[in-house]
């Protein structure tokens, strides 16, 4: 669920745009570096973006009975790293706004910040930490996707609370977050499970892709 066109006041639109722009420019520099060395990187990145877009157009059942769609940013950050995921999410969100009217142009900055920056960065930190502790990839990826999804929504709650502080900011945040917690924690768990099953599927079918992306090492594929 992205913030809609016209929902945020102009001041906050500008703030989120500026914060997001800094990270996205850094991500762009990373991509430029990657594409300079080998020219097959750009088509692959485009395909990953297309995959993220399609993933976000699939319906995912939630335990609470509602339907939602996966964010895909957990999988993205594990496969391509947070900086690249930020740039991809800019284009994915832009396409969602101009192909599906999902999200909006003025709220793009805020949506990039929550879905493209905070979610992937925190997810990536979790992924790295768990892998350092020698936890197997499927379990680590469950927590990565769970954290990335949940933090996306927590950030959205913060953005909304900042824009509409009401009487007491803390209370407003608590209300927004309370609503998100009821609806999003089951969704985050569902996304975690889904991402794990997707990961297992790819690992059993084409482990060489994961090795090339640097997700797992050569030895691990041999062990499985």
């Amino acid at each position: 669920m992205h913030i809609m066109e016209g929902y945020l006041p102009p001041f906050w639109c500008a703030v989120w745009f500026i914060i997001s722009a800094v990270v996205v420019i850094y991500g762009l520099m990373q991509i430029k570096k990657a594409t300079e060395d080998n020219d097959d990187a750009l088509p692959l990145l485009a395909l990953s973006g297309a995959f993220m877009f399609i993933l976000s157009s699939l319906k995912m059942p939630s335990v609470s009975g509602s339907c939602s769609h996966p964010c895909g940013n957990g999988l993205g950050t594990v496969f391509f790293g947070p900086a690249v995921t930020a740039v991809l999410s800019v284009i994915v969100l832009l396409f969602q706004a101009i192909l599906l009217a999902h999200g909006g142009l003025t709220t793009l900055g805020a949506n990039i910040f929550s879905m493209g920056i905070v979610g992937p960065v925190c997810g990536y930190a979790v992924w790295k930490a768990l892998r350092q502790m020698n936890i197997s990839a499927p379990i680590a990826i469950f927590f990565t996707a769970f954290v990335a999804d949940l933090l996306t929504y927590i950030t959205t709650a913060v953005e909304l609370a900042l824009a509409f502080p009401g009487a007491d900011m803390g209370a407003t945040f608590a209300t927004f977050f309370g609503i998100f917690a009821v609806t999003q924690i089951p969704l985050a768990i569902a996304e975690g499970l889904l991402t794990t099953v997707i990961y297992n599927y790819i690992e059993s079918a084409r482990p060489d892709i994961l090795v090339r992306l640097g997700v797992i090492s050569e030895q691990e594929t041999g062990a499985n």
Partner: peptide, 14 residues
């Protein structure tokens, strides 16, 4: 189904 669909689409995209 969703997981095998998404996994397969990823492999196809690759």
């Amino acid at each position: 189904c969703l997981a095998s669909l998404a996994g397969m689409v990823f492999i196809r995209t690759w």
